[in-house]
Write a protein that binds this DNA or RNA. Structure first.
Lengths: 147, 147
DNA sequence: TATAGTTGTATAGCCTGCTATGCAAGTGCT
DNA sequence: AGCACTTGCATAGCAGGCTATACAACTATA
């Protein structure tokens, strides 16, 4: 059976994800951030006070993973978790001032990692790559929802 | 500053990698395999008796990561590590009969995960995606080598 | 031939992902 | 009111990635 890792999308996407993550880690370390917190921060910068469940749904991450990530973020002074008044189960996630202040520098870092890691591609190709990945992810989520 | 996770290659590649890994994990669990062992197995199926260093170079994985992965593989009866006669530092990695026997089923599983996860793309698009990812990875490795 | 440097692995400690499970708080039905 | 069910979150335990560090085995050179 002929099978080459360099032709396998699964292998390549793992390899490529490691490149991006390593690059991002290096760039945001000076800010006191790690890559895993980034998606949650993006959502919270858009709208503070989301619940853990909101984040889980928007980021397509398992609930247990999000709980752990939020615990690290709280430990590192990025968020506070406040009990909701109407529903005692719910934790509202609030950004600290420190986290609010990191937004611009963090987004700047992410953009430059994207640019540098994809520097071998033309703008046209970068756009294509993003569109193809969106297509894979989006159709997978809808089919999962149908199941 | 405008920044959307759904337009960020870094975010998308992480998300997409999780989809592939989760799919592969489900399919190879019945074989007693986990996704992390897959790249090493692919190399060893091609040529048994590689050293840890060979694998590290071919897979672009950190040495410590490979050492851990090989330790799990040994624990699970997939490989044995034998001291090299010419060089006492070197460990030659040998597949067990069990690991040799899993090859066809494992590759079959990987192929169907690739197909299913990318089912929303045309053959043309799948090919494009693979090529674009190769381009990102390959140019990054060469530039890293130059540095 | 000592000794200084290099090389191949291992280990410690962390982050980020997962599944499985537990539990307290809310909801709804009788 | 009491009960079963649902829902939101936490915890345990593991895989697989990383950096930093240690160490034994080789190499080369004074």
């Amino acid at each position: 059976m002929e099978f080459s890792k360099d032709l396998s999308a699964g292998y390549l996407v793992n390899h490529m994800a490691r490149l991006f993550e390593k690059g991002l880690a290096a760039r945001i370390r000076p800010l006191g951030l790690t890559p895993g917190t980034f998606p949650a921060l993006l959502e919270l910068w858009e709208g503070d006070g989301l619940t853990q469940k909101d984040l889980v749904e928007r980021l397509d991450i398992e609930q247990a993973t999000m709980a752990n990530t939020l615990a690290r973020m709280e430990r590192d002074g990025l968020v506070r978790r406040e009990r909701d008044n109407n529903d005692g189960r719910v934790q509202r996630i609030r950004l600290t001032d420190r986290a609010k202040g990191l937004r611009d520098a963090a987004i700047e870092a992410a953009m430059s990692v994207n640019n540098e890691t994809m520097a071998g591609l033309s703008m046209e190709e970068q756009h294509q790559l993003v569109e193809l990945m969106q297509k894979v992810i989006y159709r997978d989520q809808t089919s999962a929802t149908l199941a």
